[in-house]
Design a protein around this nucleic acid. Sequence first.
DNA 1: TTATGATTCAAACGAACGTATGAATCACCT
DNA 2: AGGTGATTCATACGTTCGTTTGAATCATAA
Lengths: 229, 229
Amino acid sequence: MAEIRNADTRERILDAAERLFMAYGYDGTSMRQITGEAGVNLAAVNYHFGSKEALIQEVFRRRLDWLNEERMRVLDRHEAEAGGQPVKPSLIVDAFFGTLLRMAEDEARGGMTFLRLLGRTLTEPSEFIRAFLAHEYKTVMDRFKEALFRALPEVPKAEIVWRFHFMLGATSYAIAGTDALRLVTDWQIEEEDSVDRLDRLVPRLMSFLLGGLRAPLPQFAAPVTVDRG
Amino acid sequence: MAEIRNADTRERILDAAERLFMAYGYDGTSMRQITGEAGVNLAAVNYHFGSKEALIQEVFRRRLDWLNEERMRVLDRHEAEAGGQPVKPSLIVDAFFGTLLRMAEDEARGGMTFLRLLGRTLTEPSEFIRAFLAHEYKTVMDRFKEALFRALPEVPKAEIVWRFHFMLGATSYAIAGTDALRLVTDWQIEEEDSVDRLDRLVPRLMSFLLGGLRAPLPQFAAPVTVDRG
DNA sequence: TTATGATTCAAACGAACGTATGAATCACCT
DNA sequence: AGGTGATTCATACGTTCGTTTGAATCATAA
């Protein structure tokens, strides 16, 4: 046969799982679907990864390790260029969300498939997945929160955390794909604006995120006494 | 004895299903969990609703019918007050997202539980759920898109649709609850800023959404930049 | 070649799933 | 009181799930 047998069973499984988890979710994808699409034996997943849970963790680790390191590298670069001064919020947002979105153009690193999987999974019900992701993200999250705290010293930290959260949500939806967008529109957005046009989505989303991040601070209704700095 | 037997088996099932679907997702919740928590027989769901699919549709319909009608009523009111003039974007956003968030304070209408379920489900993998929601939402969506088109005549329609999409994402995350937020922060946000404090979340989210909606339009990169960084 | 460890394979396991059944029990009417 | 239709109940059906097993097959080196 043209293809080597043993060659990359693991990779074939990971690719199939990535695509299927993206399309049908974790619970909605069966081992038989995965191994069927990968063209390997049903038992191969348990042999190579141990369990379905360990499989999806590996699906994420394979991509997230690089992504989060790249985010750090970009932020490092911006901080070096700022030379002690706080990095501009737009650059921090770009280092975090822009790096993520640019990953979509890199098919060798999962491209849109992984991005949509990630977007979908952040709201996935399964507890252990969220716990795993929270652990994987901890370091990079702390780093970016700190950068934003320094970049926006006049904004309360709780406010920044919330807005980071909102930005994550908007981004997840944006990349989770056409399906969710169909809830907003059924007039197919003209071809030049289709979801596949990432070069248009990125600046669109960036404008929105920065607009939200820099919005005027909310006025709380209740006249609370200022008990904290 | 104290409680009437037949009284409201349907309601008990709907309440239990709403809570469990919110906590564990559609696929992750079994009929046995639902009927167990509701204190009814396993067969009761199929007897009263026909199937699990029909059950979750009824879970949503019970709340969405009122919600979307209320959204329309609020928008009607603002349009009447505007007397022919376009309604201000902030009022449109409030009619759509503010009405949703205020629903969280109304325990009789599902409160936070339903809100978190809704936020979670908009990214749920199951195809039929998204299709059902898209259908339920169609009328109100068209109405609000039109209102935004008129309120922001200088903004391209495609841009508005995208930003509506981003707003939906940010809102879903915001209400999908603490779990996702823990991905951003593990320092428990001080008590006064906790997720339960909806009176703080609402203005926070509104500021963010409006900031994003009114952000400067994105500059798309020129089509022929050769440099590949 | 033969020995060895890694991998693949077909087959089966027990558990959990959504659903269906038919008898028992209920509320309600005459 | 007795009849009737609606509802509840225990139980079982057929599927599909993730996982396991032990033998077959592979790659590699002595």
